[in-house]
Design a protein around this nucleic acid. Structure first.
Length: 630
RNA sequence: GCCGGCGUAGCUCAGCGGUAGAGCAGGCGAUUCGUAAUCGCCUGGUCAAGGGUUCGAUUCCCUUCGCCGGCUCCA
């Protein structure tokens, strides 16, 4: 170190704004503390809270301050890890008694004290032995475990603020006083290193922002998100329910939700027929032996319900549809000319999900997959995958999901025992998916250990109101089940060949998709999906006949309309329709009755004035068209 | 499944050792009204279930079930 130039010195030559807001620097592409060194002539970039990396450093320091506060109040607490995450940070602790929400308030107070103390944050680079000495002296077993796994030969960095020292690569803010606005949000149990075989630590979640205004804005956003929660909207809009008496994770679709689901399914079916799919139906149960052949009994048992005896034979409720489609495939000798065959089914499956993971419609035990199995020749595989990617993209965009993330889910290289089939077949399948992604130029991440037991997949994640990701569409390439069921087709060469299977969904499941859709639209569905598209609101009862007549005309034109003849004021009915998120409110009084018109009020927009009824019907019909015709 | 929190009327919630209360919703009546809540009356609860402590439990303790936030796991 010694004679090097520090980032802080360089910072002095910048403008006031940068000096005030810089949190960390990027030197030669590497993040460096403001107190760190800059080699002669190296390019330096100052990062603020506006940069994702700057934000992460800020919140990482907040996590350290949290840990320091916890150690002050609970000296016997053992430190786990404490990174910055999207929208905040957390820190894991081993404590004798879990933290209560009241404890959080006290910890937050202590954090404020630490900020006020303006403790300088210092980086120390130490040898492995020195690091061991520091953390065994401080009684931090988890830190020692981490040290023992750090690569040999490289210096180990620690950060120190006041009496607190943490093992950390950094970088960090120069002083605790740089933290301005933060809040602890929740406590939760979390397994050490994310492994349920390890002991459970207590995790404190928090968030931090550059200003109190930003923090308040974020907290407000969280509140807003709660208002879009599909569980709440599902009840308010009378879409669905779930029942303690009926069992957890099982959904009951009410008329409104049922209608939306049916509209989506109709749209889905029509689009599949257009794209060369055939629609099939299969049963809900099958003999245990079938599930042994498919491999489910051995590889998927934890997710399946116990057998039921029928005439002394064991049957299982289906967790997947694939074996059924395979049986149908085998009813004829297939020719290479028949392929590809694309068989789609809205197939209802039942899976055992551990009780703690259930979540409204987004994680349930009985659900309907918009499933399909494509049987094709190996030379058709790539084109078929691309076709499915196109369809998935089209479906998601049709419902307004513009952003989603793609993951190439492959085997866990450390644990190949979890999957059926040999390496060669898996490589072929993975490559086919990878090539299709590359041909489409789609960005993706690789998820090791995310593959299904019978094959790798491209998994598409859509988000709920709180930004939590849920796996929706999935495209899986499978060489294994065709092998296990000895599927064949007669080739051009007169010999039997093995087809390849693609398992896929393009929405995911009706339950999960609708759950996300409700939150996506905050319950205000586009006109084509609104259970009630227009409500006619007569001003007084002398307008009832005219209102009923208008209602009939709307219905004849194929518009889902209601007439609100309740003995209430206009403003009451308007409010009611707005709360129910009905897109069109047609107010009719003397003026409208005498001119054959209605006053059009649009949801969330307000009164748009009177128009002749023919014009109104045309407008609503145009807006109610399916997404495919836009 | 694990950690923590919660469970009172259909919904949102108050109450808390002496056997329950509000608003909304629902029913009845009045009001005939012009763009987000007209007024009045009424109905509605084995306080999640089971067990324990107590003279007495919705309230305290235990168990079970369910829900919520995470972890782990997946459409």
């Amino acid at each position: 170190m010694g004679d090097c130039q520090t980032v802080l010195e360089l910072l002095k030559h910048t403008d006031h704004e940068t000096q005030k807001r810089a949190l960390v620097a990027k030197v030669d592409g590497k993040l460096v503390d403001l107190k760190g060194c800059v080699p002669e002539g190296a390019p330096v970039q100052f990062l603020t809270f506006d940069d994702p990396e700057g934000r992460a450093v800020y919140r990482h320091t907040a996590a350290h301050v949290l840990a320091q506060a916890v150690k002050r109040i609970y000296p016997e607490a053992k430190l786990g890890i404490g990174p910055a995450i999207e929208d905040g940070f957390y820190y894991d602790f081993k404590v004798d008694k879990p933290f209560s929400p009241e404890d959080l308030a006290a910890i937050e107070e202590e954090m404020k004290r630490i900020v006020k103390e303006d403790l300088p944050i210092e980086r120390m680079e130490v040898s492995r032995e020195e690091a061991r000495r520091i953390f065994s002296q401080r009684g931090e077993p988890f830190k020692l475990e981490l040290i023992s796994e750090l690569p040999e030969g490289e210096p180990i960095s620690c950060y120190k603020q006041g009496e607190y020292v943490d093992l950390c690569v950094g970088p960090h803010l120069p002083s605790t006083s740089r933290l301005k606005a933060f809040k602890l949000l929740s406590v939760a149990g979390a397994y050490w290193r994310g492994d349920e075989k390890n002991e459970m630590l207590q995790r404190i979640y928090g968030t931090a922002f550059e200003t109190q205004t930003q923090l308040d804005g974020y907290l407000f956003k969280l509140e807003e998100a709660k208002r879009r929660d599909h569980r709440r909207l599902g009840r308010e809009l009378d879409l669905f329910s779930m029942h303690e008496e009926g069992g957890p994770g099982l959904v009951y679709w009410h008329p409104n939700g049922g209608l939306i689901r049916q509209l989506i399914e109709d749209f889905w079916r029509a689009e599949h027929r257009k794209r060369g799919y055939d629609i099939v139906f299969s049963p809900h149960i099958a003999k245990l032996d079938l599930w042994k052949t498919s491999g489910h009994w051995d590889w998927y048992k934890e997710n399946m319900y116990s057998p039921m005896k029928i005439d002394e034979v064991d049957y299982l409720l289906k967790p997947m549809n694939c074996p059924f489609h395979i049986l149908m495939y085998k009813t004829q000798t297939r020719s290479y000319r028949d392929l590809p065959m694309r068989w789609a089914e809205l197939g209802t499956v039942y899976r055992y999900e551990r009780s703690g993971v259930l979540h409204g419609l987004l994680r349930v035990r009985g659900f309907t997959q918009d499933d399909a199995h494509l049987f094709c020749r190996p030379d058709q595989l790539k084109a078929e995958i691309e076709g499915v990617l196109d369809l998935a993209d089209y479906m998601l965009k049709s419902f307004g999901f513009k952003e989603y993330t793609l993951m190439l889910s492959v085997r866990d290289p450390m644990n190949k025992k979890k999957y059926i089939g040999n390496d060669q077949v898996w490589e072929m399948a993975e490559n086919a998916l990878k090539e299709a992604l590359q041909a489409k130029g789609l960005p993706y991440v690789v998820g090791e250990g995310e593959a299904k037991f019978y094959g790798p997949a491209i998994d598409i994640t859509i988000k709920d109101a709180l930004g939590r990701g849920w796996q929706g569409p999935t495209i899986q390439v499978d060489f294994n089940l065709p092998e296990r069921f000895d599927l064949t087709y007669m080739g051009e060469d007169g010999h039997l060949h093995r087809p390849v299977m693609i398992h896929r969904t393009v929405l995911g499941s009706m339950e999960r998709f609708l759950g996300c859709l409700i939150e996506h639209y905050a319950g205000a569905f586009p006109v084509w999906l609104s259970p009630v598209q227009a409500v006619v609101i007569p001003v007084a009862d002398r307008h009832y006949d005219y209102a009923e007549e208008l209602g009939e005309r709307l219905k004849c034109a194929g518009i889902r309309a209601q007439v609100d003849t309740r003995n209430e004021k206009v403003s009451f009915k308007i409010r009611d329709a707005e709360v129910k998120k009905i897109p069109y409110m047609l107010v009719v009084g003397d003026r409208e009755m005498n001119s054959g018109s209605a006053a059009v009020r649009k949801r969330a927009v307000g009164d748009t004035g009177s128009k002749p009824t023919d014009e109104i019907i045309g407008e609503i019909k145009r807006e109610a068209a399916l997404p495919s015709s836009h």
